[in-house]
Design a protein around this nucleic acid. Structure first.
Lengths: 184, 184
DNA sequence: TCCCGAGTATACCGATCTGTATAGTGTGAG
DNA sequence: CTCACACTATACAGATCGGTATACTCGGGA
């Protein structure tokens, strides 16, 4: 990826997340990236492609972020679940003041045939699989329902954080997850 | 409200929810409502105003829907909490295949000065207050944290339902709320 | 009968949208 | 030096955006 393409993607990521996808035009992206539209279209071909790469890149960075946190976490499955919530809180503090970027993008992309759709659903499936794997280490019988509950707490916390419903929503979700795991 | 204005609001509500606010233009709204743009602007003055009334109307209908369900629910606070989740499941089945309209709108409206902002946050505050009032009947000491947990489960379930993460997410949230209340 | 308000139809405004075309600049490798 | 390539600058096409203006139809009430 050329330096200009990198700058385009960084600018698009910031603008798409802060203002929404449909509210941001390619002229603004090019201007913020210090790049002409020509270069932008030479590198990406379409706005739709920029949207897809924005989401795919964000997804990739999130997964790497979680993986790094998980590497530094204790081996006990329950502690690793809490490490995911801690990762989410840290991530939200610096990357997600407005909630989950995938959920927000999904609000604007209704067409299931849109190439960004599998990126969005893919991240959620990955998260559910992550929780399921960890839940199997906590309570092998009935790991699936436990993972789904963790998923609900996690998604709810991201929304609550984005809408600023009450202070430290993700921390609260973490404590609830803790209580839930302790009850096993 | 004149018949044409009502049709405009109905068309706008459907289009805004299904496709997103910025993706829908006033020409499309007018066409779908069987109304000219002139009539549309005579009644509402601006697209922004249509957005505000769409959200306010949706909020009002949701609150009335919950109130009706709550009227028919048993007097025990725990049962009334579950009635809220049941109401949400019924509402989602016929009005919200794509998750919470307020959350989706918030993804597109970043500016806190936007007149639609208080409508969005108002509904969430109302929901939290509703849960808090019911939680006080279940566990007077520590009603606030209990209400926040119910809120997380509820919001998470709406997101999970909208993204189709797994079947009957709201029903699962209801069962988790049930377990949570039973533990009090 | 007349009038008035609600609504229709159509044409238009300036601005902005995504996307393209042409011409020119700077730089590193061979 | 040359050549390829990344990039800049500017202009523009075609469509659509929110919003407005003019002229018309229709039905109900005084």
């Amino acid at each position: 990826m050329t330096p200009a393409a990198r700058r385009v993607l960084e600018a698009a990521a910031r603008l798409f997340y802060e203002r929404g996808i449909h509210a941001v035009g390619v002229d603004l992206i090019a201007h913020e990236a210090g790049v002409t539209k020509k270069t932008l279209y030479d590198r990406f071909g379409s706005k739709e492609q920029i949207v897809v790469e924005y989401l795919a890149d964000r997804d990739e960075r999130w997964r790497a972020f979680v993986a790094r946190r998980l590497d530094a976490a204790p081996p006990e499955p329950a502690a690793r679940v809490l490490a995911v919530f801690d990762a989410s809180r840290a991530w939200a503090a610096e990357h997600s003041p407005k909630g989950c970027g995938m959920v927000n993008a999904h609000a604007e992309i209704s067409d299931p045939e849109h190439p960004a759709h599998p990126v969005i659903t893919g991240q959620k499936r990955w998260m559910l699989a992550l929780f399921t794997g960890l839940a199997e280490g906590v309570r092998p019988a009935g790991a699936e329902p436990l993972a789904r509950t963790l998923m609900l707490l996690h998604e709810g916390a991201l929304v609550a954080h984005g809408l600023d419903m009450f202070p430290d929503a993700i921390g609260h979700a973490r404590e609830q997850a803790h209580a839930l795991l302790a009850a096993c």
